[in-house]
Amino acid sequence: MGIKHFFSRKKSRDIAKDRLKILLISDRVNCSPEMMEMIKTDIAKVISKYMKIDTQSMEIQISKTGIKGHDSKMPTLYANIPILDLHNK
């Protein structure tokens, strides 16, 4: 293993974390990663009508930890969508 390869390699700890995060979302809501991907694409499509967004780095996830003031067990959909340009393209 070359030294370059050694530094560029993603640690298995991070791989495990990333895999689990995606896996548990679909386990918890009983919907497949494919379906999550479809939801993500659809959200991106709608937002893109109004502003320029970074679809590559946008993230969506369903979390069990609810918003303040709500029932703590209510699942919540978080979307993290970086906006590249607020003005309509």
């Binding site: 640690k11 298995s12 700890r13 974390k17 689990l20």
Partner: peptide, 18 residues
Amino acid sequence: MVKRGEMMSAADVVDILS
């Protein structure tokens, strides 16, 4: 292994399972 980045730390596991 945690030190080498080849195992999830306790904090990682707690973060995931909350």
